[in-house]
Amino acid sequence: MNSSDINTVIRKHLQRVAPEADLDSLNPEDELGPVLDIDSMDFYTMMVGISEDLRVEIPEQEYGNLRTLKNIREFLRKSV
């Protein structure tokens, strides 16, 4: 799986929890919560979706770090 596939999956699940968000204008280092106004349940839903699509387990200790697009991408590149 390459970076663009990973990006597609992240995008799909972000779009599901924040349908009206303009993801193109998102800075990779933006904190997703405050910028997109998504709460912990949205975040959880997104993580479950990504983990199922990419068949990757997201360990509890990593979970708290995955707050920006950049961190999520990096984690997935390492893990997938």
């Binding site: 912990s40 959880y44 993580m47 479950v48 983990s51 199922e52 387990e57 360990p59 509890e60 979970y63």
Partner: peptide
């Protein structure tokens, strides 16, 4: 949560 998959995690 250490022993749970992300789908089963408690919040």
């Amino acid at each position: 949560n250490q022993n749970r998959s992300v789908q089963e995690r408690l919040l």
